[in-house]
């Protein structure tokens, strides 16, 4: 646990989202009576803050819990324990327990632009649905407002009456963004927003996300396995491993310092072409993520770590500030 670290992340500024000790354990049923016998610790005591207008990037390998974390914040999954506060108000456990007013503040954009829009509905109805459900607009104002939203995300309002299949992947993702923005949320969760679309569309989406963020001082939680996207868009970055945050801090600082050996390995594995035309070499990380059912008692990264020593197998390193009060690392050996 990271109790001693206090508020993880931004100490100053206007806090929008506060996530405290959030846990999600999924039961693994077994035995004759299908009683739950084990728990998958998908997210295990995660604590962080996000400021208004800030973009937090969540990175980590598949199964590290980043998507589960995002879905708890939106309310798709109820957390096992912990607190999620938005603007100082407890969001409650799940979508059922949230009222409409709270729901509209947190919206999500999904990875898959093909299934995130109902194929049988016109764009007018897809983007207009939140307006109607929340009673923000009625009748012809819906059409006008949807048109404005589409224009804002760079889609011709003449295409109001088109169906999703008439759009390209990038355009569909913009429609999804327009739908998420319809209710003027203060926090947008972006779950792999560009990983199913082409590089050129990706550039357009990234530009759009930055523009929208600046205009409405929105906050994003950006989940992506593509570190180049994350570093480009995020102000701060949180690296997750096996349900825990192992490093969190300012994006540039984390990318430069790479204090946690896992951060180091993750970043060394990403192929990148620099603006100069230079191509970085990649370095694989050996071994596999251990099972989240019975995570190792000490540091969860211990088995794959090149810095490991005896203490790592026994004692779990706390998330603590190194050098900078806002740069936290969970490692026993952070010799810079």
């Amino acid at each position: 646990m990271t109790r001693d670290s206090g508020t993880t992340g931004a100490l100053s500024g206007d806090t929008l989202l506060r996530v405290e000790g959030l846990k999600k354990y999924f039961p693994v049923r077994g035995g004759f009576w299908q009683r739950s016998v084990k728990w998958v610790r998908a997210v295990d005591s995660v604590t962080f803050n996000i400021n208004r207008g800030e973009v937090l990037g969540l990175v980590g390998e598949s199964g590290c819990g980043k998507t589960t974390l995002a879905q708890m914040i939106v309310g798709i999954y109820p957390p096992t324990s912990g607190r999620i506060e938005l603007d100082g108000i407890d969001l409650g456990k799940s979508l059922q327990s949230r009222n409409l007013k709270t729901k509209r503040k947190v919206q999500i954009v999904f990875q898959d632009p093909f299934w995130s829009l109902n194929p049988r509905k016109m764009v007018r109805d897809i983007v207009g649905e939140p307006l109607v459900v929340h009673g923000v607009a009625l009748g012809s104002t819906v059409v006008r407002k949807v048109g404005d939203l589409l224009e804002m995300v760079g889609i011709d309002r003449a295409r109001l009456f088109s169906y999703p299949h008439e759009f390209s992947g990038g355009e569909r993702q913009r429609v999804a963004i327009a739908r998420a923005l319809a209710l003027n949320p203060s926090l947008l969760l972006l779950d792999e927003p560009t990983s199913s679309i082409d590089t050129l569309s990706q550039a357009e989406i990234l530009n759009l996300l930055i523009e929208v963020r600046n205009r409405f001082s929105l906050s994003y939680v950006l989940i992506s396995h593509d570190l180049s996207v994350v570093q480009y868009l995020s102000d701060r970055i949180a690296v997750m491993y096996l349900g825990k945050i192992v490093e969190i801090g300012d994006t540039r600082r984390v990318f430069r310092a790479r204090l946690h050996p896992y951060t180091e390995a993750l970043m060394a594995a990403v192929p990148m072409i620099h603006a100069s035309g230079e191509v970085s070499d990649v370095k694989p990380l050996e071994g596999h993520v251990p099972s989240a059912i019975n995570p190792p008692p000490g540091c969860r990264f211990e088995a794959r770590c090149y810095k490991r020593q005896d203490v790592c197998a026994v004692e779990e390193p706390p998330l603590r500030a190194i050098e900078d009060p806002e740069h936290l690392v969970a490692c026993h050996f952070t010799n810079v």
Partner: peptide, 15 residues
């Protein structure tokens, strides 16, 4: 149009 570290903070050129 690749979002590389050197371009952070600038809009990406698009076609």
């Amino acid at each position: 149009s690749l979002p590389v570290p050197e371009r952070k903070g600038q809009p990406l050129p698009i076609i």
